[in-house]
Amino acid sequence: MSSVVESLSCFVRSSIGKKILVAATGLVLVLFVLGHMIGNLLAFAGPDAINAYGHLLQTSLHGGGVWIARLGLLAAVVVHVVATISLTRQSRAARPDAYGRQKAQVSGRAARTMIWSGLTLLCFIVFHLMHFTVRNIENFGGPDYEVVLDGEKMHNVYKMVVVGFSHVGVSAFYILSMVLLYGHLSHGVSSLFQTLGLATYRSERIFKAIGHAYALLILVGNCSIPLAVLAGVLK
């Protein structure tokens, strides 16, 4: 037993082991981001659709479902952030003296700025949770935000989204964060196939294309909501 733990902790402390953790937690977050976006797009199907969806999430497994998801996602984010910061620090230390001239031949800007897009996303995640989950940036609770649907009282998610995104500054920060998420994903998604040892000579291009298409899908899908609110399409 203890030797299992010892070997595993040695594994996750190694550079490759740590990077595999980054990829595995990245994959969890990638899948979550897609599900989250699809759910949110229900706003375009009208208030009832998204309110019922919100209610379903809140009440699944007698209210336990949402907490299982929250704890799982929290763990994924914490591991992802701790591992990437640790790897970034180790790799900075691996080149203490900078070159006078250094030319990147093939790597793109998105790849070279993963830590910065990531840290901004971390700020965004904290803000987003305070905004729509804890709701202590603006008061989205109380009787003003209650609706009754099929005889059940539930939170008016639709109204919260519309009021939340009607502030231009808030919407602008969401959109900026989504642009950075686009960068993070356009490198990250194809990169995780390499880290997990799945890329091959033949499939590599397909994974690259999937990564870019996925990143674009998330960008367009997520930005459409604040933009629709600002344009008065969702009201």
Binding site: S15, I16, K18, K19, L87, Q90, S91, R92, A93, A94, R95, A104, Q105, V106, S107, A111, R112, M114, H187, S191, Q194, T195, G197, L198, A199, T200, Y201, E204
Partner: peptide, 23 residues
């Protein structure tokens, strides 16, 4: 350091070793 999958190594390699070996 660790590999961030940028593939500058493959571009610089005088023997054109492929990053598929890293995979």
């Amino acid at each position: 350091g660790h590999c961030t999958n940028h593939y500058e190594c493959e571009a610089a390699c005088p023997k054109e070793i492929s990053v598929r070996w890293i995979t």
